[in-house]
Design a protein around this nucleic acid. Sequence first.
DNA 1: CCTACCGATCGGTAGG
DNA 2: CCTACCGATCGGTAGG
Lengths: 203, 203
Amino acid sequence: MSPRKSVVETRHTRRRILDRGLEIASVEGLEGLTIGRLAAETGMSKAGVLGHFGTKESLQLAVIETAAEAFAREVPQRARDARPGLPRLRAVCEAWVSYLERSPLPGGCFFTAVAAEFDGRSGPVRDAIAAMNTLWQRELRIHVRRAVSVGDLPEDTDVDQFVYDLVATMLALNHFLQFQRDQRASTYARRALHRLLGKPGHV
Amino acid sequence: MSPRKSVVETRHTRRRILDRGLEIASVEGLEGLTIGRLAAETGMSKAGVLGHFGTKESLQLAVIETAAEAFAREVPQRARDARPGLPRLRAVCEAWVSYLERSPLPGGCFFTAVAAEFDGRSGPVRDAIAAMNTLWQRELRIHVRRAVSVGDLPEDTDVDQFVYDLVATMLALNHFLQFQRDQRASTYARRALHRLLGKPGHV
DNA sequence: CCTACCGATCGGTAGG
DNA sequence: CCTACCGATCGGTAGG
């Protein structure tokens, strides 16, 4: 029996479980993430792992939360110093491409993976993934709209179409990198972005 | 005990299993496709189902083969009467969009789903999916190259970039339709294609 | 946080 | 093609 841990130690253990869980889920999906494997890889018992979350579904929701925090840190946060409008939008996209290129998670983009996994299902886990997806596209729309309103993009820009094109480029980048393991993918992605956003350094 | 069946009946049973298996796998993935569920939904015993394939892996490979045949029937075959070059390429893309729009499988595009599922894994199943993916992109490249050589597309067209852009549009279409359930997706996809391929009806 | 369980389900086999 | 199994693993619980 392990001795009872302090609050800070408990929180640290929870983080370790979630960080490892995010890595596993990026490869195996959120259903393929099993409590038994998570226990083995953190050196705990299954009951020890489950004690932090109660149910597998709560664990899945906590992993989604963890993924959202990592994404926020890696992409939108890195663009916050750029001037609102096209420069900010470009900075966001460059941080996004760079994140997918570096691919800190072994299975590539967590949200792309679990969106595909849960697209045919329903329930709280799907809803949580969808909520993050909506939040992110809303942020992209705001950047595009701003770029239009300050005159960096043409007045007649279709904002939703623009967001679709950005998302398409990133979905393809993740697909070509992770599935096809084609390193040229980031070149293609940057060229596609260049077509949408123009030359970096110019307005 | 069921009486022994004729060869034609056996083949028919195998087809029924594979058709149902493809539907299940489009939603649950190829790992989530279980022999028990497949048996229940075809009114057979697990041993009866497994007898047709031997192992789950063989079943998975047979489902991939079935999916490839369905895709070939629905997309490239429907474009074979169009003139080689840009008209053929446009016909292929229109059949592709239409296929994703109609979405005969409950989980959307089978290959998109399983590519995401297996991108972090290795083995014969991943290899089979990758082989189909390669075959299809090779066909797309041939159409693009032909469109360039007959003068329908500019001489300096980057063929691989062009294929990347087509795939990006289709991945996004499937994502927006299946995950976001956004019916406007096909409008966005067709506009993106229009930008790449020009106005249908014109060379 | 552990050990020691639970019923359900997994892929697969034996034997007919 | 079936019934009747097998060991392994699933999510989860009891009790400490």
